[in-house]
Design a protein around this nucleic acid. Structure first.
Lengths: 164, 164
DNA sequence: ACCCCATGGTTGAACTCTAAACTATATTGC
DNA sequence: GCAATATAGTTTAGAGTTCAACCATGGGGT
């Protein structure tokens, strides 16, 4: 139980800047998707991930992992997408607990319509505003943050077990 | 109406890395706050911003701007925080449409309790995993993204006017 | 074979967020 | 001074998310 190391003014500036930039950027992308294609960005990501899979289908839990989504959230989302006719569920033969989510033909068409606007927005507000060096740096920074987070998840699991 | 410039594999990697890192990081902070202090990160930010103001109070719209929140969202959030007794609304004398949100003594205490865990998490997963040079870079990158987004907002307002 | 627990996934309730409509006050231009 | 419009903030309805509880199947150990 040591003393808290508060953020000094310089760190505050960096932190607020980071929050502001990523927050505004993500919000912009989400709004763009909602406005132009009538779905939240998270749903677009589901369609996008599915479209890149052989058979355009994936087990629910794998899909959740790829989309950084909880199982519950994905389940709700897929239900919604299923109602829209863009995704269909299929049982898994080898594991009867399992479910596949599969992109429908209609879902693929919707994805094709939505993708250009999304990619354009990403390019315009990320790749076009950063220099090649900055992109390199951003890659390293992202990697470092992810790496610093990974043990945390592992630790959480261990602690869960340790409760007995 | 020119051709879409799709992301090449390298750009895809950077983009996915960025999404993964920021997504996981923010989610971690949100979960930490929810678990340890029973409120979403967004609510903590409201309390934090208020606490730094003279009189610990701020007009609703200014508060919304500082928290990168819509007016509607802030209104809901403040209602919730008011129920909890952590914030109180006060009418504005000079502009009778206006409202101040003011941090209560109890709200300040809650904030003091929640802050150490939050700051520690931010430090642990951001400042401790990046080198001083990377922090510098991140600051520049954030600034560039924000700058690239700012004209967009201005443009949106102009277009709104142009509809007449 | 059976018990125990882990895993895959869904569900329902409570909560948060968004968008649009709405009220009330302020401001502007004639 | 008044109509038109802009601004501040709230409200309502609907959509999305979270959390915990839940069902069903799978996989050991004994």
């Amino acid at each position: 139980m040591t003393e808290v190391r508060w953020l000094d003014p310089r760190e505050q500036t960096i932190w607020r800047g980071f929050l502001g930039a990523t927050g505004a950027f993500m919000e912009h992308l989400d709004r763009q998707m909602q406005r132009d294609s009538g779905m939240p960005l998270a749903y677009f990501e589901i369609l996008a991930v599915l479209s890149e899979m052989p058979d355009r289908s994936l087990r629910m839990s794998e899909l959740a992992a790829m989309c950084r989504s909880s199982r519950s959230r994905l389940s709700h989302a897929v239900s919604r997408l299923e109602e829209a006719g863009w995704v269909r569920r299929r049982a898994c033969e080898s594991d009867k607990r399992g479910q596949f989510a599969e992109l429908t033909e209609e879902g693929f068409k919707i994805l094709e319509k939505a993708a250009p606007g999304h990619v354009t927005a990403v390019r315009e507000h990320l790749f076009d505003v950063l220099t090649p060096e900055q992109l390199e740096q951003l890659e390293q920074i992202s990697a470092a943050i992810s790496a610093g987070l990974a043990p945390q998840c592992a630790k959480a699991k261990v602690e869960l077990r340790a409760e007995f």
